[in-house]
Amino acid sequence: MFVGLLKLAPRCSACGLDYGRFNVGDGAAPFLIFIVATIVIIASQVTEAKLAPPWWVHVLLWVPLTIGLSLGLLRLAKGLLVALEYRNDAGEGST
């Protein structure tokens, strides 16, 4: 389904479905920002309250986690948007 980290392939390698007709773009990104931010903020606050580590420990923990969750969930969300557009036969509007 993907040819790169986040780029959709032009067609499905198994069935030949044209992914070009789906407009997923960056639609999933704003929702993931809220989800990932909530997870990281709650985890960092709990860590600070229970362990009180120095600031650099927070940097070592939360920066990689934020990047990893964002990239991992973005692939999942883009795939979900393609599946939803296919299932609901959504497409560009016509006049």
Rank of each mutant, 00 (worst) to 15 (best):
M1G: 15
F2W: 08
F2E: 02
V3T: 12
G4S: 15
L5C: 02
L6C: 02
K7P: 01
L8G: 03
A9R: 15
P10V: 01
R11S: 06
R11I: 07
R11C: 04
C12I: 09
S13F: 10
A14G: 01
A14P: 00
C15E: 07
G16V: 06
G16L: 04
L17F: 09
D18I: 10
R21D: 03
R21H: 10
D26K: 11
G27R: 14
A28F: 15
A28T: 07
A29E: 03
A29C: 05
P30D: 09
P30A: 06
P30I: 05
P30S: 09
F31A: 13
F31Y: 13
I33M: 13
I33E: 03
I35N: 06
V36L: 09
V36K: 04
A37D: 11
T38G: 15
T38W: 00
T38N: 11
I39W: 01
V40L: 11
V40E: 10
V40W: 00
I41H: 07
I41C: 14
I41R: 00
A43R: 02
S44W: 02
S44L: 04
Q45R: 07
Q45W: 02
V46R: 12
V46N: 02
V46D: 08
T47A: 12
T47S: 14
T47V: 13
E48M: 04
A49D: 11
K50P: 00
L51G: 01
A52Y: 12
P53S: 09
P53R: 05
P54M: 08
P54D: 13
P54T: 08
P54H: 07
P54I: 07
W55I: 11
W56P: 03
V57M: 14
V57Q: 11
H58N: 09
L60D: 07
L61R: 11
W62A: 04
W62H: 13
V63K: 06
P64C: 10
L65N: 04
L65V: 14
T66D: 05
I67V: 15
G68W: 10
L71E: 05
L71W: 11
L71D: 01
G72C: 04
G72L: 01
L73G: 02
L73F: 08
L74S: 12
L74R: 03
L74C: 00
L76H: 04
L76F: 09
K78A: 08
K78D: 02
L80G: 06
L80P: 01
L81D: 02
V82S: 05
V82C: 11
A83L: 15
A83P: 01
L84V: 14
E85Y: 13
E85C: 11
E85I: 00
E85L: 03
E85F: 10
E85R: 10
Y86P: 00
Y86Q: 09
R87E: 08
N88L: 12
N88V: 00
N88E: 12
D89F: 08
D89Y: 10
G91Y: 10
G91V: 03
G91P: 09
G91N: 05
G91L: 04
E92G: 06
E92N: 14
G93Y: 06
S94C: 01
T95F: 15
T95Q: 06
T95V: 10
